[in-house]
């Protein structure tokens, strides 16, 4: 048995990593909740964002956290355009076509990145990458703490958009009642694209928070999205709050199983939890409400 401070430290660091998972999952669940499709391009968009952060660091010397401010509007625009002008028209409104289009986009992006950046792994060496915060006996990772705070701030912003703006209310309306939305004059295609834009913008934030502590190569996003899918199901498909809480939970579970089972088995805990939830509460831990 480990001493209590070590356990606490691991769990808190896990919680903070979970926050970034949550951010990836929030985008995914938002798109699922409104468009009712699983966006297979989500991972590739995350990879793209991480390369964006890396490029801004490598060639412009821009700090990853500052780059978020630049990359977020870019990813927002890209998400909007890809849904409005590629996925929408090419999907013809059929779920399985849309699914395949998103899969196709992810293949194009991943291979495009492979051509440009090769399969090399890139990192960013900031002077705060390994900085720690001492709280009593606990040593907490500084960049993860930043990630946690920034994720919570982003979640609040997403919540405000969904609940306090007309576009946000329209997004929630379209999620549950498309015909009713069209009859009050909501342009459903625009709302779909706005949802995609919002989900993609979350990825830009996640990428900036990840790069100081993680690496990127053309496949990196996929690993995160696999965990994010798990979180989306765990939290209740389409539930933003569920994704947020689910992400935090997954972070803690992963940290706990790494600690007790060893690093290489860290993700085992996630999938055991996942199977248990599917068996006993298949609608997700927190139900679905967008």
């Amino acid at each position: 048995m480990y001493p209590i401070p070590i356990i606490a430290e691991a769990l808190i660091n896990g919680l903070m990593l979970g926050a970034v998972y949550a951010l990836v999952a929030v985008g995914l669940t938002l798109i699922y909740g409104v468009l009712h499709i699983v966006n297979f391009a989500h991972g590739a968009f995350l990879t793209l964002s991480m390369f964006g952060i890396w490029l801004l660091w490598e060639h412009a010397g821009l700090d990853p956290y500052l780059s978020i401010l630049m990359l977020t509007p870019i990813m927002f625009g890209l998400g909007y355009g890809v849904q409005r002008f590629i996925i929408g028209p090419a999907g013809h409104g059929r779920d399985n076509s849309i699914l395949l289009v998103t899969l196709g986009i992810s293949i194009v992006i991943e291979n495009g990145l492979l051509v440009v950046f090769k399969s090399d792994t890139r990192t960013i060496a900031t002077d705060y990458g390994f900085r720690v915060i001492e709280i009593g006996p606990l040593l907490l990772s500084w960049p993860r703490a930043v990630g946690f705070v920034a994720t919570m701030a982003t979640a609040v912003i997403v919540w405000l958009i969904l609940n306090r703006t007309d576009v946000g209310k329209a997004i929630r309306a379209v999620a549950k009642e498309k015909l009713g939305a069209r009859l009050v004059g909501i342009d459903v295609n625009h709302i779909y694209a706005m949802t995609f834009a919002l989900g993609s913008a979350c990825l830009a934030v996640a990428a900036g928070l990840l790069m100081p502590v993680f690496y990127v190569n053309p496949q990196t996003g996929g690993a995160f999205v696999l965990v994010a899918f798990t979180i989306v199901v765990l939290g209740g498909m389409g539930s933003v709050t569920g994704a947020l809480l689910g992400g935090l939970l997954i972070g803690v579970v992963e940290a706990a199983s790494s600690l007790f089972l060893g690093d290489s088995l860290g993700q085992l805990g996630i999938f055991v939890l996942f199977i248990l939830v599917l068996l006993f509460k298949p609608t997700g831990l927190f139900g679905a409400r967008i």
Binding site: K176, E177, V184, R289
Partner: peptide, 20 residues
């Protein structure tokens, strides 16, 4: 069949009526 937005509050439903 009304087609109201079940996941929005009564007031939000009304606000969206005024969307345009």
């Amino acid at each position: 069949g009304r087609k109201i937005f079940p996941n929005l509050t009564v007031e939000e439903n009304l606000e969206l009526g005024n969307y345009r």
